[in-house]
Amino acid sequence: MLLTDAAAFRAAPDPAGTHSAACASGAFLVAPEGFSLAAQSALDNRYMASGTVAPERALAQHRGLQRALADEVPTVCFPGDPATPDAVFPNNVFATAPGRVIVGHMRHPVRQREAERADIRDFFTRVLGRTLIDLRTQAGICELTGSLVIDRARGIGYCGLSERCDPVGAAAMHAAFGLGVSFVFALAAGEYHTNVVMSVLASRALVICPEGFADPAAADAIAARYAPHVITLDRAEQQAFAGNCIALGPQTVWMSEAAADRLRPSTRWRFEDCGFRIRSVALDEIEKAGGSLRCCVGEIF
């Protein structure tokens, strides 16, 4: 069931049963080898910096991220490619659901090249035995778990429409991930991905910045489903990528060091009150490309 009306979503019950584990059993990354800023991505990503980046510093920070995440879940890293400078954010292109690996339909050609990688597809299909669902064959633009934030245990998807996801793509992702309910809404002007303005943590808590939504009623309807376990970010916290966080376990939330440093004391207390310890990794060099920690992490369910 796809819903586009905030009142209808607020009234809809959770889908019956448990759809999958609340947290991933593993994670995958793509190294920022030959790291640079993609001019095409800058057309609709206002979070990107201008100027140059330091590739070796980006690599060092990325290695630190892998080491840190490996403390919590098995974390594999695929090599990068200078021809695909945004590949450091693989969760937009490749995603998983139980028994499946899904390939997204990216908007920009520079990112479409990432989906052509046979090694990542083969890892999931030949090594892990997953069924491939290739959304490049349908017309809708859908940048997977960038555009779609998923409450895995409840089987609920939150899909923000922007240049990076259209209604046809939203419907395709709803089917590919096997979701019970998807709430489809417009992001605020200038927002490109849903996972920059909200996150669902371990299917029990919500991190959200209402200013990231075109319609405040949409944000209110989502928050009502998780009350009282709602962590509301102000615009400054959100723009520092605090909304681009992820729970890979039931008691830990991961975000970049810059995001953690920007949190107000009251926001830190809310994470703790919801049962999450904050862990952070320095990623400021990678953040120049317009994404942060959650964007770097592909989840294995």
Rank of each mutant, 00 (worst) to 15 (best):
Ala22Ile: 01
Ala12Pro: 08
Phe94Gly: 05
Cys245Asp: 01
Phe271Val: 06
Ala118Glu: 12
Val93Leu: 06
Ala242Tyr: 04
Ala172Asn: 06
Ala8Trp: 09
Val103Leu: 10
Arg121Gly: 09
Val197Glu: 00
Pro167Tyr: 04
Gly51Met: 11
Arg136Pro: 04
Pro79Asn: 05
Ile120Pro: 06
Arg117Pro: 05
Arg270Val: 09
Val297Glu: 08
Glu116Ala: 14
Cys274Gly: 09
Met255Asn: 05
Arg262Tyr: 05
Glu33Gly: 14
Gly155Tyr: 02
Arg100His: 12
Ala7Phe: 12
Asp234Tyr: 11
Asn91Trp: 03
Ala188Gln: 10
Pro210Tyr: 00
Gly80His: 04
Val230Asp: 07
Ala259Gln: 01
Glu287Ile: 01
Glu163Pro: 13
Val200Tyr: 03
Gln239Pro: 13
Cys245Phe: 02
Val73Gly: 03
Arg100Leu: 03
Met198Pro: 00
Arg63Pro: 11
Val103Cys: 13
Cys165Ser: 03
Pro79His: 02
Arg107Tyr: 07
Asn92Cys: 07
Leu293Thr: 10
Asp273Glu: 15
Arg262Ser: 07
Ala31Pro: 09
His105Asn: 10
Glu287Gln: 08
Ser280Met: 14
Ala175Thr: 10
Val93Arg: 02
Asp14Pro: 12
Ala16Ser: 14
Ser20Pro: 00
Ala205Trp: 00
Ile246Asp: 06
Asp215Asn: 11
Thr96Ser: 01
Ala289Tyr: 06
Cys159Gln: 04
Ala49Ser: 12
Thr131Lys: 12
Arg67Tyr: 07
Tyr192Val: 08
Thr52Gln: 13
Leu148Asp: 02
Ala27Gly: 09
Ala176Met: 06
Ala83Lys: 12
Glu116Cys: 11
Leu293Tyr: 13
Arg277Gln: 15
Gly178Met: 07
Leu65Arg: 09
Gly155Asn: 04
Val53Lys: 12
Gln61Thr: 09
Arg107Leu: 14
Leu201Trp: 01
Ile133Gly: 01
Ser20Gln: 02
Ala31Cys: 10
Leu2Glu: 14
Ala21Trp: 01
Thr18Met: 05
Arg152Leu: 02
Phe35Ala: 08
Phe183Asn: 05
Leu29Gln: 07
Gly34Lys: 07
Cys23Pro: 01
Thr194His: 12
Phe301Ile: 00
Pro82Asp: 10
Pro216Trp: 08
Arg121Asp: 11
Gly160Gln: 00
Tyr192His: 11
Pro79Arg: 06
Glu272Lys: 15
Gln238Trp: 09
Cys142Ile: 08
Glu285Gln: 11
Val76Cys: 10
Thr267Asp: 05
Asp134Arg: 14
